[in-house]
Simulated scan of single mutants.
Amino acid sequence: MIVMTIDQRRSRQGEDKVEALINQANNTVTHVRPFQRTAGDEVQAVFDDSMEAIHLAVMMAASGDWSVGLGYGEVELPLPKETRAGRGPAFVFAREAVERAKNTNAHLAVAGPTEEASRLEAELQLTACIVSKRRATAWEAGTLADQGLTQQQIATRLGITQQAVSSRLSAALWFEANRMMEEATKSLSKQLRKLGE
């Protein structure tokens, strides 16, 4: 299982964004146990889908508003209905990871029972740093690319040239960052399968 712990950054200097995160995340991602406030400005959820967990972790960290800890490993079963009542190594790893994430430029850390955790962390930290530097125009083009539109179709939709679309996607390292997340997903899924054997 994958446990994600997210802590709001600079929460004492601004509004509490936790409830908005809980509502949005629980309505848009597939989870085993939903996001729930655990204490103060911190939330936690349980996943079994590596892709969902990795994509969300990178996006949350890249926003600059959150420190994200991904922990993977075993959990005590059956899981309780309340996310915050969960126990097991994956919960401990998530706690360890979120504390380390607070002291990184990427605001993201990964912990688990295998050596793969260190490589996954490095990949996802780099990806989060890349994503954090994207401009709104890159998001506009990249979101359409992710929906399967060609660069020419995107150009027509946005009223710009195909060359401008290509430039936006290239500057944002859109496809490279997506590939990094895909490879990280494969790696984490493999680790979870091994742990389940």
Score class of each variant (00 low, 15 high):
G86I: 15
R33E: 02
W139C: 01
Q162G: 11
R179G: 01
V110G: 00
V98P: 00
R119T: 03
D48R: 13
T143P: 00
C129Q: 14
A62I: 03
G73Y: 08
E182G: 00
F35Y: 15
V110N: 02
E182V: 03
V68H: 01
T5L: 12
D41G: 08
V29S: 02
E176N: 06
S189N: 06
S50H: 05
R12K: 15
E19H: 13
V3P: 00
A184F: 09
L192N: 04
M51S: 15
W66P: 00
A128V: 10
T28L: 11
A171T: 12
T30C: 04
T161H: 10
E76K: 14
V3Q: 04
F47E: 05
D146W: 04
L56G: 01
T156S: 10
Y72L: 03
H107E: 04
D49N: 15
E42L: 03
T185M: 02
G64W: 11
L108Q: 04
A109R: 04
I22F: 01
V98G: 00
V46H: 02
F93L: 02
R179V: 04
A39M: 13
K102P: 00
I130T: 11
A155F: 05
D146C: 01
R9W: 03
R87A: 13
A57Y: 07
G112F: 07
V75D: 02
H107Y: 12
K186E: 11
Q13Y: 13
R168K: 12
I2H: 04
S167Q: 14
T83W: 08
M60L: 15
R9A: 03
F47W: 09
G142F: 09
